[in-house]
Amino acid sequence: MDLVALAEDVREQLPGGAELDALGRWTFMSDVCKHCVEAPCQQACPTGAIIRNEFDNVYIQPDICNGCGYCVPACPYGVITQVPEDGRVFKCTLCYDRQRDGMEPACAKACPTNSIMFGEVEELKKVAEERVSTLRAKGYTQAYVYGTPEVGGTGGIGGNHSKFILLDEPETYNLARHPFLPQAKVKGSFITSAIAAGVLSAVVALAFRD
């Protein structure tokens, strides 16, 4: 897009009939932890290393993680990574250390255009909604907030605390449209397991008849 024209809020026809989008497009997103409201990685973690800390962030306690790696395939966003040289898993901590000292995360602090914003989830939600209305008024009708219970937070995840304003389909940003909470099915799996155990016991018991 013509970034200068966009920044200057140019609405009228550009010289030579050039489109605002004529330079192609850039789709930006920071690929950080989404801090799911119901976090699959936290539910998967068998050691209790993954917790919600006092700032309501999903946080891996590095002194407890034993590197079983079960949170890795549980994460619906492919965020958590196991580091082979270390053995443990890591992800964005939302600068827990800085937050404890009353500072905002380094990415939000460093971002010169304030594209990355940090604050209370409810306030950020309002900011995002306002920004989307502004973008739509400027003609970017495809803009929307990703990470709400409607898009990007269905299937039991209940939305994300990290929200993103996207200008294209979620898949373009390598995000699933409706990620799901895998642990929602553990109870169901217990029930079918119990039925299977009963059937198999009966089948084997029947083999003992004379």
């Binding site: 539910q43 998967a44 973690c45 068998p46 050691t47 209790g48 290393a49 407890i64 993680c65 034993n66 590197g67 079983c68 790696g69 079960y70 196991q82 580091v83 082979p84 270390d86 053995g87 443990r88 898993v89 642990q183 553990v186 799996s189």
Partner: peptide
Amino acid sequence: WDLGRPERFYNMMRVWKLRSPMSNQS
């Protein structure tokens, strides 16, 4: 053996989470 930090295996015994099949398994 498969753990990234085998010496910390006993952390599996810190908690029991019914929704974590890995915890139930341990």
